[in-house]
Amino acid sequence: MSERPLPLKGGKNKSHRNTVIAGVGNRLLGDEGVGLHVIDNLSQIPMPSNVDVVDCGCDLLSLISHLNKPQKIIVIDAVRAGGKPGEIYRLDYNELKTRGIEMQSSHQVRATDALGLLKQIYPVLAGCEIIIIGIEPEAIELSICLSEKVRESIADVVRLILEEISCSLPE
């Protein structure tokens, strides 16, 4: 992915879909918190009113407070899938099992379980597209800092998410 600097200002939105962007992870466990660091960056970009940017901590079920007929949910989390540190995965929730990737989590309810439960309970999510943006972690240990490779991947993750919501980057 490119090395363009982070777009911290502006952004012209072309999205017409209600979208929730949810970061999940624990900031005290190094790369485990990368999803929340991405949310920090996204929070500095003006978002259209139909896009919610949510810091879920390590409780993805807290999404229940943000389910206002979303047509798309984007979850950002650390995902161990055997790649290189900082590698970015774009996963369709419905394809997770067939791809054999399990999102391992020290969270109370695993992220994939939380999504499955929400989808089962809330009919409003039946036609909702659910995308998981995973970042391969390097160091998961007591630390409030990201490893270098993971930190460097954030700009690309942010760009990928802006593309997901059809939000054009500032010139």
Partner: peptide
């Protein structure tokens, strides 16, 4: 799992999640 419970008892699990949501609110 809760997902399996929800397939047979969706109203009860939804109520549980609403209580959790109350705590969040």
């Amino acid at each position: 799992s809760a997902i399996a419970l929800a397939s047979d008892h969706p109203a009860e699990v939804k109520m549980g999640l609403e209580l959790k949501k109350l705590g969040n609110t």
